Structures are given as structure tokens and as C-alpha cells.
Simulated assay, not measured.
Amino acid sequence: MSAPGNPPPTGRVAWADLPAAVRHAITARAGGDVVATDLAATGFSPGFAGVLHLAGGGRLFLKAGDGATNAETFRLHTREAEIARALPAGVAPALRWSLVRDGWVVLAFDAVEGRHPGGPWTAADLGLVLAAHAALAAHPAPPVLAPIGPRLKESLVGWTRLGAARGAGVPAWAAAHVEEFARWERESVAADTAGDAIVHMDLRSDNVLIDGDTVHVLDWPHAGRGAPWVDAVLLAPTVSLEGGPAAAEVFARSPLGAGADPGAVRRMVAAWAGWLLWSSGRPDPPGIPHLRAFQRAQAAVTLEWLRQLL
């Protein structure tokens, strides 16, 4: 089941519904027939995502998406294959192979055991995930990971767009700060988030598996290099949504929170809140009908954190 606040996956394609040529290419590369599948129970990407059980006992975690359904999914899967090959050993489940066939891109990873946190979050699970994130951020980013600052400056422009739209959907308390928040987007966030750590950029419960004391971090297409505390900012509101502590408390519990500049954190929280608020008002992307509702819920939690920081 999906964690509270995190909607069920949509657009999932069963193994039997993949094009025959794609299935044949997968089984040829895997070296055995598929005898059973377990579809992933969380996540947003349309297409196939789940564990393949192979004749002979082998297992793979497979992701497959086609550009016809959602061009962004095809692009992200392609990018994830490039990133996965460059990550340090042990940071994420290893990529075994990837292929492209008839407009579909396919990634095959080691299948790892574990459960998703967040149903609801416990103090023990939160401690494990925050410690794993700190260990992850201690790795210098490989060259394939570009700095996140320029990307954030280009994409986190929610307050700028909301201001141009005369503040549609902006809470009353935030209306007086829209110009200030927009200036932070333009002038501060790129420099605030600069650094050389690996930054996952999509750290939340459906991208984490916990197996005993081991934490596996999944789904890497958005990763880049930047300040080590950025993922803790992005994670905190989702933990609060899924029954955990308030976002501010989640960030305070992070081993990386104490070393972060409070002004930089405040500006990043503001930029993230603005992007969530603006993006949640857009039409649903193809094949992902529940994404905007999830973003609206995140926006409410992140805005409350921002209000406290002000």
C-alpha cells in the first residue's frame, strides 16, 4: 500500500501489456524467461516498474517507459541509466544493463529487499533514513552530475510566476512577501545550494527501501551536485505529510541541518514552496493524474514551514 499522503502509482503497465518486441528484447538480455512479476506499489512514472522473477531463480528490478505516453519519462529513464553507471558502489542498487527498443527505454537493476517507510513514519525509520542521507551526501559527486544551482534558478520560479498571475492561490500571509520570495529565486538559490556533494533531488518514502539497518535509495534521474543539506529540505515536508514530525523538526533532526546556513535554508524552503504551489495548479502531466494533488499537499506543509521560518 502507498504511504499516507503519497498517492498510488498510476499508468503502470503490466508485463503482459508491454509490446512483444520489448518483452523479447528484455528476456534476451536477461538470459531467461519471465515467470512472475511484482509491480511496484508506489511511484509516479508511467510504464512498467517492478521485479521480474526469471526462470532459474534470478531476479531483476525493471523500469520501462515509452516516449509516446510521456516523453519526460523516456528522458528521465535515459538520464538515470547514465547517472546509475557513474554512482559510487553501494550508493544505490547497481544497474545491470539498459536498452532501447521500439521507443521504449528499459533499465534493469539488482533487485533489493526492503520496505518503504512512511506508513506512518516512525522515529527509528526517520533516524535510519536521515543517517543514510548524511552518508550519501558525504560522497563527492561524480563528474556526470551537473551543479544543481543553475537548474534550480531556471526551474524554481514559482513565486515569479505566481506574482505575474496576481498571486492566484497564494495564502494571505505570504502575499506581502511574494516579491521578496521571487527575488530570492532569482538572486540567491543558485549560490545557496552550491557544493560538491551528491544530491538525489527526489528523496522521499517511495524512493527508499529499508532492510533491517540498511537503507537503499532508489530512482536517480534528477541527481546533481550541490550543498549536502538540500535533500533534507526536500524530504522534510513529505515526512510530515506521511505521519511524521513537522517539517522543521525533520530538518532539525538531520545530521546535516546544524551545518547549514539558516538564511540559505529559508530561501530554499521558500523557493520549493513557491514551485510546489505554482506547479500544483497546472494540468496533470500525461499518464500521471495524481501528481498535482500530491504537490498541493506538499505545498501546504512547506508553506507552513516557511511561515515559521519567517
Rank of each mutant, 00 (worst) to 15 (best):
Ala55Met: 11
Val35Arg: 11
Ala141Phe: 05
Thr69Met: 07
Phe294Met: 14
Glu179Pro: 02
Ala300Cys: 09
Arg59Ala: 12
Arg85Cys: 13
Gly212Thr: 10
Gln295Asn: 14
Leu310Val: 15
Asp110Arg: 13
Pro286Gly: 06
Gly56Arg: 13
Val105Leu: 07
Leu152Cys: 09
Ala271Tyr: 03
Val233Cys: 13
Leu256Lys: 02
Leu60Lys: 03
Leu303Asp: 01
Ala20Thr: 13
Arg75Asp: 13
Ala273Ile: 03
Val129Lys: 01
Pro8His: 10
Arg292Leu: 14
Gly257Glu: 03
Val35Trp: 03
Pro285His: 07
Gly259Tyr: 08
Leu95His: 01
Ala232Phe: 01
Phe109Lys: 01
His200Asp: 13
Asn207Ser: 11
Leu152Tyr: 15
Ala194Ile: 07
Glu179Cys: 08
Arg253Val: 12
Val51Gln: 13
Leu145Ala: 08
Ala197Ser: 15
His290Asp: 10
Pro255Lys: 01
Val269Tyr: 01
Val144Phe: 05
Pro93Gln: 09
Thr238Ile: 10
His116Pro: 00
Gly169Lys: 12
Ala134Asn: 07
Ala89Met: 07
Leu162Gly: 00
Ile288Gln: 05
Leu60Glu: 12
Glu154Asp: 15
Phe74Pro: 00
Ala260Ser: 11
Leu145Asp: 01
Lys153Arg: 15
Ala16Met: 09
Gly224Trp: 02
Glu180Gln: 15
Ala41Asn: 03
Gly118Ser: 10
Pro143Phe: 04
Ala94His: 05
Leu107Gln: 02
Gly127Leu: 11
Gly5Pro: 06
Val178Pro: 04
Ala223Ile: 04
Ala14Val: 10
Gly274Trp: 04
Lys63Cys: 10
Leu95Lys: 03
Ser240Phe: 00
Ala273Tyr: 03
Ala182Gln: 06
Pro117His: 05
Gly47Arg: 01
Met201Ala: 14
Ala135Gly: 11
Lys153Gln: 14
Pro93Leu: 08
Gly224Met: 08
Val217Phe: 02
Ala168Met: 07
Pro283His: 08
Val157Tyr: 00
Ala135Trp: 01
Ala41His: 06
Pro262Tyr: 12
Pro283Val: 07
Gly263Asp: 14
Asn6Pro: 00
Ala172Met: 05
Val250Arg: 03
Asp213Val: 10
Arg29Tyr: 06
Ala258Gly: 15
Ala123Ile: 07
Ala299Asp: 04
Val13Phe: 07
Ala94Tyr: 00
Glu154Ile: 02
Trp305Gly: 02
Leu162Ile: 11
Arg59His: 12
Gly244Leu: 05
Gly195Pro: 05
Trp272Cys: 02
Leu52Phe: 15
Val22Gly: 01
Asp192Val: 09
His290Val: 08
Gln298Pro: 00
Val233Thr: 09
Gly32Trp: 05
Leu209Met: 13
Ala248Trp: 05
Asp231Ile: 06
Val170Met: 09
Ala246Val: 14
Val301Tyr: 00
Pro150Gln: 14
Ala108Asp: 03
Ala247Gly: 14
Ala190Trp: 00
Gly11Ile: 07
Ala30Trp: 04
Ser98Leu: 02
Leu60Gln: 08
Ala134Gln: 06
Leu126Ser: 02
Val34Thr: 10
Phe294Glu: 10
Arg101Gln: 15
